[in-house]
Amino acid sequence: MADEPGKVETVDGKAIAGYARRFSMTAASPERLAQPSADRGWRDRLFYRAFTFPALLVVAGTAVLPLALLLFWSLVDQRSGEATLRYYAQSLASPYFLRILLTTILMAAGVTVVSVMLALPMAYVLARHTLLRSILVPMISIPRMLPFVVVGYAMVLLLAPYTGVMNKALIAAGILSEPVFILFGWPGQAIAFGYAGVVIAIAILTGVFMTVDPQLEDAAVTLGAGRLEAALTVSMPLAAPGIVAAAALIFSTVVTSYAIPVMLNSRTPYMVSVLIYNNLYSLQERHLAYAQAIIVTALAIGVTTAAQIFLSRFGSRR
C-alpha cells in the first residue's frame, strides 16, 4: 500500500466515482487484484463498505434501535420517568414470575430433549438414504412452511375432548370410556410444541448428517466396529455441533412461543410469553413487560451462546 500510493489512488478513486477509464484500468487492475486483500487501502475498503451501508442502516433502524429502546424503557419508571431497576427487581423477586419462568424452562427443555431424540434416527436415515430422502423430505418440510396457528388448529382437531379424532378413535375402540382432557393442559401444549420441535430438528439434523462423510463409518466398520457402534463413535460426535445448535433453536423457540399456549387454552401451564402479553395489553404495565421480555430474551440467547461456547471449548470437531 505504502509503496504504490499513486496507483491505489487512481484505481480506487475511479471505481468509487463509478466511471471507468478503461485503458489505464486494464493496465493497473490485474496487479492490484492479485495482491492479498489485507493490503487494500482504506478507500478500497470504503468502496466495499459502502455497499453494506443500506442494509446496516435498515437493521440499525428497525432492529437495533427498537431493541435499544426496549432496554432503555425497561430501565425507566413508567410513570415518573426516572431511571430504575425496579422492573427487573420486581420480576426476579416475584415467586409468581419465577414459577412461570421455571415452568416455561422445564417445558422447553423437556420438549427439546424429546424432539431431538425422536428426530435423530429419522434424520440419520434420511441423510443416508437418497431415495427415501427425496420422497420424505418434501413431506416433512410442509409443516415447517405453515404458521404455528395452523398447527394449533390441527392439534385441536386431533386432541379436543369430545370432537377430537384421537379421543373418538380411542372411545370407539373401547380403550377409553370417557374422553381425556389433555388438550387444554400441559400435555396438549407439550404435544403441539413437540410436533414443531421434531419438524425443526429433522430438518436441521438431516442437513447436519449429510455433511458427515458416510465413508468414515465404512472405515470404522473395516476397523472392527459394528454399524451401530460406528454411527455412535464416528457420525454422532461429528454431528454434535449441529445437534446442539438444533437443540438451542428449539429451546429458544419454545421459551418465547406465544401462539400455541394461547390457542390451547393458556391457564395451565401459564407460559411466560402469555404473562408478558397480558402485562403489555391487559394490565398496561408496559415497562414491566419490556423488562420481562428482556429477561426471556437473555435466557434464550444465553442458552444459544452457552451452547456455542461449550462447543468451541469442548467441541471435538477438527
Binding site: 465404512d218 472405515a219 461429528l238
Partner: peptide
C-alpha cells in the same frame, strides 16, 4: 462375515481419517 468381523484392514482413497479424533 460382516465387514467388522473379517479382520481386514482397508485404506480408503481419501484416507477417511476420523477428523474428531
Amino acid at each position: 462375515l460382516p465387514p467388522n468381523k473379517r479382520n481386514i484392514g482397508l485404506v480408503f482413497q481419501n484416507y477417511s481419517l476420523f477428523p474428531h479424533m
